[in-house]
Structure formats: C-alpha cells, structure tokens
Design a protein around this nucleic acid. Structure first.
Length: 258
DNA sequence: ATGTCAACCGACGGTTGA
C-alpha cells in the first residue's frame, strides 16, 4: 500500500509538533504540506528527519510555501507550476517522481484578495494546472495532484451559509475551471468512495465555524485513471481540528494498492 | 462582515491574507 496525505498546515513552524505526531501515528509514505509560511532555511527539517522523512521545500517569506515529505528517495520534477512564467514568485507547487508515479502538491490561489487581478491570477493558475495534467497524460504518466485547491466543487461541499454567493471558492468560473481539470480524465478520490457524505476539510477560525460544523471541502486529491483503479481508501483526519492550536485545515489521506 | 490566527514591519500595534 502507498499512503499519500495532503495537509494545509498554516505555518509549519507553529505546528511542527502536530506534524511530527501525525507522521509517527499515520506514517504516510508522502506528506504534502501547504502554507508552510516560511523560507526553506526556516523549515524544521531536522525534526522530520528524526522520524525518517526528508523534505523537498518550496518556500517564500511570510506567505504560501509548499513542501513534500518522503521516506524513500524521490526525483524532483518541478518547483514551479509549468506555464506560470517567471513573474510568478509565489511558492505554490512541487512535483516529484516516486513509486512509478508523479506526485504533485499544490496550493491553489484563494482568489478573494487583490480584486479582479487576484481572481484572474487564480483562474490563470487553474488553467496552467489543467495544462500540466494534459502534459502528464501526453507522457502516459500515472499521477496524483493533491493539495489545497481553494474550490468547493459543488454545493454539497460547503455548509449552508458558510460562504457568500460570490466567493471565489464557489464562483461559476472557478467551478468550470475545476471541472475542466477533472474532465481531462481525473478522479476526485474522496467522491469516488464517498459520493454523498458531507465531509469537510476546513473550518474557519472565525464565528465558531468548527463548533457549528460550518466547514468547507477544499482539500482534494485527483487521480489519473490507473491510480483511480488502485484506490483503496480516503480518510479525512477530522480529529486534528479539535486539537489545541490546530490548523484551520485537516489532513486528507489517500491509500493506493502498491 | 465576523465569536480568529499567523507573519511582517518597526517598535506593541496595525496591516495583510486567509
């Protein structure tokens, strides 16, 4: 079995102990982190090394930042999403090759800040991600693209009144871009196994969202066709949200046959 | 918009982004 977990950690330095405890307990083969909110030299790599994990870190100061923790060696493929040209300084994508597959960890732009330009950046990023998926299909690669997509694909993916109608996470253009990605031939791993359940992966810190279960499902794992056939289970680690000083997101684990 | 949180800058409090 291969276990791949994605987790928007909202500052890896604040939550290093949570990550270490998770690695010890769940022992994923790969842990994809988003919003590490630090530069590579500030990443607490030694703490994870002590648990047997190496890390590929794509960091930047203050915001964003992704990392990919792995037990066995990996081949680095990309530290930027192809198609996002040099003007894109934001650290939002990491891709490696391991276990005969490409593993992409991503932090898709939220799109609610920066006005219309901020939203256009989100859509541009989504189209570039679709192009990346098409390129991987062109190579006949097996691949998984997992992370914080900042998209609620349907109205079943957020609690009633959790979002205003014009929020960038649910705007029609956002959903169209997400479905254009999925329709290249990918499988939303969680919905493949749990088609109807209200399963959320994020609860805002504000307004008692956790206590009211006013959550969103925005952390997703998309699988290429042969990997979808190997899908065994998807787990939303909801209990992480109830811990002290939690991230506002919880981990989502995908298990594939070996 | 918020019953919030984290990082930065510039000196403990406002700003930004989520």
């Amino acid at each position: 079995m291969i276990k791949i977990t994605t987790w928007n950690i909202n500052s890896v330095r604040v939550r290093e102990a949570h990550v270490s405890a998770f690695l010890e307990r769940e022992a994923p083969d790969f842990l994809l982190l988003q919003e590490i909110k630090c530069e590579a030299h500030q990443f607490p790599g030694m703490d994870f090394k002590a648990l047997g994990y190496d890390a590929v870190v794509v960091g930047q100061k203050s915001y964003n930042g992704v990392a990919l923790l792995h037990k066995a060696p990996v081949e680095l493929v990309h530290k930027r999403l192809p198609g996002m040209t040099g003007d894109d300084a934001q650290a939002r994508y990491v891709e490696v090759r391991a276990n005969g597959m490409n593993i992409g960890g991503l932090y898709l732009p939220n799109g609610n800040s920066g006005g219309e330009a901020g939203y256009e950046y989100k859509l541009h990023w989504m189209h570039a991600l679709r192009d990346r998926a098409l390129a991987l299909f062109e190579d006949d690669a097996d691949f998984i693209l997992a992370g914080d997509y900042n998209v609620c694909p349907t109205d079943a993916d957020f609690a009633p009144r959790a979002l205003p109608a014009n929020d960038a996470l649910i705007r029609p253009e956002t959903r169209a871009a997400f479905h254009a990605l999925v329709h290249t031939g990918l499988t939303d791993a969680l919905r493949a196994l749990h088609p109807r359940e209200a399963l959320y992966t994020f609860w805002d810190y504000q307004a008692g969202a956790w206590d009211r279960n006013s959550g969103l499902r925005i952390d997703h794992a998309l699988l290429s066709p042969r990997l979808a056939e190997r899908l065994v289970s998807v787990t939303v680690h909801r209990d992480e949200r109830a811990k002290t000083q939690p991230s506002d997101h919880v981990p989502v684990s995908v298990v594939l046959t070996a």
